[in-house]
């Protein structure tokens, strides 16, 4: 199958593979250790594990956008901040 029209690059392919791995990991996690039922976090709304992944990914995207817009440091630092943010979301939200 010719996928040249999609203009794949190694970094973007890696990005999507990581997203796919996250989804697979979440599925295995829920099968092995069930507990993804809705819970009330510090933001006072119910979230499941899947919701928390969504909030983490969406928030991470905005962390990177704001980093690009306002901070001149390397984008890898934004990734570090995003990972810390995702851990916080999974613990407290």
């Amino acid at each position: 199958m010719d996928l040249s029209w999609m203009a794949w690059t190694k970094p973007t392919a890696t990005f999507f593979i990581i997203i796919l791995c996250l989804l697979v990991t979440m599925t295995i996690w829920e099968i092995k250790i069930p507990g993804g039922a809705p819970r009330l976090g510090i933001l006072r709304f119910e979230t499941t594990r899947g919701d928390r992944l969504f909030v983490s990914l969406l928030g991470s995207a905005f962390i990177h956008i704001f980093w690009l817009a306002f901070i001149s440091l390397s984008l890898w630092w934004a990734l570090v901040v995003a990972c810390i943010y995702a851990i916080c979301v999974f613990i407290w939200v």
Binding site: W5, M6, A7, W8, T9, P11, T12, F15
Partner: peptide
């Protein structure tokens, strides 16, 4: 999803 992936690919090139 596939068109969105293509857009992501285009955005860095």
């Amino acid at each position: 999803i596939i068109p969105l992936m293509t857009v992501v690919n285009y955005s860095v090139q």
